[in-house]
Amino acid sequence: MTSTASKAPKPPRTTKASRSDSTALYDFPGPRTERRHRWYGVLATAAVAALFGWLLYLLFATDQFTATKWTPFEYQGIQDLLLRGLGNTLKAFAYAAVFSLALGAVLACGRLSEHPPLRWLATALVEFFRAMPVLVMIFFIFVALKVHALPALVAGLTLYNGSVLAEVFRTGVNSVERGQREAAYALGMRKTQVMTYVLVPQAVRAMLPTIISQLVVALKDTSLGYLITYEEFLHAGKLIASNLDYDLPFIPVVMVISPIYIGMCMLLSWFAHWLAGRQRRNPRTEAVGIAPASPGTLLPGGQ
């Protein structure tokens, strides 16, 4: 122990990392442990590099980098097809985001209502739509109600994400410190005023990271449109990938599409994380604990 104390300033890299997300698991590493860890690190890096090399070898061995498979991306028409797909994905996301926020607000109002029948109805709706796979709703709307692909996709996403967001709003309002509500009532405010002026602003600010994370879920789920032949990004990719003229460029298509898709979702996730960090330092959210930036997950039928 004494040796670590005297050597404490020497290994700054590992110290910083293990200090910042330190767990109950390990002690501060001594010099011998540190050497051992470095060995583990070298081994792990080698293993990962080997895996990558093998993957690269597989890609070359199955001729994924031949010119014929990559030429399609040079054509204007195919670039347009991809961009149109991306546009359709973003359009579905925008509609779904706006509508599910609205539906979430309405359902949350219902769940927080003082009238039992309204509360029961909202609870039943929320619990049902949260327990049902999104895809079942989308298929039901698409097949049974015979609407077009875009409205079916948007409606399915809205119903699911709206009810999850309703739960998020409700937990947010309920987690505002009790004193805030009591003080507002003591000032003679009515329930609507207490909600709109006191509780909801604080709750929304505190739940903003969670809300945005839930929107990431909505963005990811727009890819379900592919399954009901909505002409979104993945669908465009599939069209290119099944083209015989270019020797079925499936892997190239995946290599082009997935970074864009994953990048969009990551950007939104990082925004949520950044916001969570910022809100934690914000004095306006003192009366509510900031939720970590994770999509709304609660056991159905719980709490």
Binding site: H37, V42, V216, C265
Partner: peptide, 22 residues
């Protein structure tokens, strides 16, 4: 406590959490 493993885990989680399942 090994940095390379931590990085591997972080990449795995970040990429897969932001990948559409479809």
């Amino acid at each position: 406590p090994v940095r390379a493993l931590r990085a591997l885990g972080t990449v795995w989680v970040t990429v897969l959490r932001n990948t559409p399942l479809t």
